[in-house]
């Protein structure tokens, strides 16, 4: 909203009225189908995460060997059971909490830290900027997953270490995005005006530049969350994530691998859950990017 107002104040007059009339409006927010689909999907996922204990009568880690390997649509087990007779639906539902948490926590530190670093280096420039760009060059040389795995190999498996490992490299895209935006913004009139009336650099960066450069970084958050959830699932597939019997989609896929022909649903269904979350977040990210671009 605000970046449009500052970036091109004359645009409002150029848009033909007919076009404005066609757009669907919910209050002030124009909703396009991509964004809407993404939001609805994510909403459903969040509802499942919150209400997981109400949605299923089963404990996700309770083993009932008499009920092992039941196929989907068995009475009482809509998505079937696994090799320990655990209810797949309840494991998927409870895992939603964990995977959403991984997505959210993995991006929060990188987003805040990366954006602030990007704004500071973009605005202040000089040696600070050069140092940052060289650090970025070095970290970008590592394949993301390999660096994360290497860090986890030292810290050991587990959720906290996963956040640390992802955080070490995760801030880079945010720093690059806000730095680029800041470079484009720092010579605009309102920044000069703020400097003229004697605002400190800190105040200019936080009060004037930040609100105008944060939108693209915020949009990237959704891509970052997809990446974080996939990375989390991958690490847990490889045995480096949350440890069993905690239900996690990646780990469930790994557990089902050895029973592929016997119980295809053990691997297929948790993957579909990952797919739904990934598609929802990507659609939201795409939708927001389109709104900004077009």
């Amino acid at each position: 909203m605000s970046e449009k107002a500052f970036g091109s104040p004359h645009l409002a007059e150029v848009v033909p009225l007919s076009k404005l009339g066609r757009a669907t409006r919910l209050g002030k927010v124009r909703v396009d189908p991509t964004l809407l689909t993404g939001l609805v999907l994510l909403g459903l996922v969040i509802v499942v995460a919150i209400t997981a204990p109400l949605l299923t009568p089963y404990d996700p880690i309770e083993q009932r060997f008499t009920e092992a390997f039941l196929p989907p649509f068995s009475p009482g087990h809509i998505l079937g059971t696994d090799n320990f007779g655990r209810d797949i639906w309840s494991r998927i539902a409870f895992s939603t909490r964990l995977d959403l948490q991984i997505g959210l926590l993995s991006v929060s530190f990188p987003f805040v830290f990366g954006s602030l670093i990007g704004i500071a280096t973009g605005y202040l420039g000089g040696t600070l900027d050069t140092i940052l760009m060289r650090i970025v060059d070095v970290l970008m040389a590592f394949p993301f997953l390999i660096l994360v795995i290497a860090i986890m190999s030292i810290l050991g498996p587990g959720l906290t270490n996963l956040y640390i490992a992802v955080g070490v490299v995760g801030w880079i895209p945010y720093a690059r995005i806000t730095r680029g935006e800041t470079l484009a913004t720092r010579h605009l009139e309102y920044v000069l005006a703020a400097r003229t009336i004697g605002c400190s650099s800190l105040r200019i960066m936080l009060r004037h530049i930040l609100p105008n450069v944060i939108a693209p970084a915020l949009i990237y958050v959704f891509t970052g969350m997809v990446l974080a959830i996939l990375t989390g699932a991958t690490l847990s597939f490889l045995g480096l994530g949350p440890q069993p019997p905690t239900p996690e989609w990646g780990a469930m896929i790994a557990e089902g691998r050895q029973y592929l022909l016997l119980a295809w649903w053990m691997t297929t269904l948790p993957g579909l859950a990952l797919l739904v979350v990934g598609v929802a977040l990507s659609l939201i990210g795409d939708g927001l990017a389109e709104r900004r671009g077009g």
Binding site: L260, G278, V279
Partner: peptide, 18 residues
């Protein structure tokens, strides 16, 4: 390809195997 982008590759590989 949006599906391909958001699918974990290990899962997709396992599906191909299956």
């Amino acid at each position: 390809f949006l599906f391909a982008l958001t699918t974990p590759n290990f899962w997709f590989g396992i599906l191909l195997i299956l």
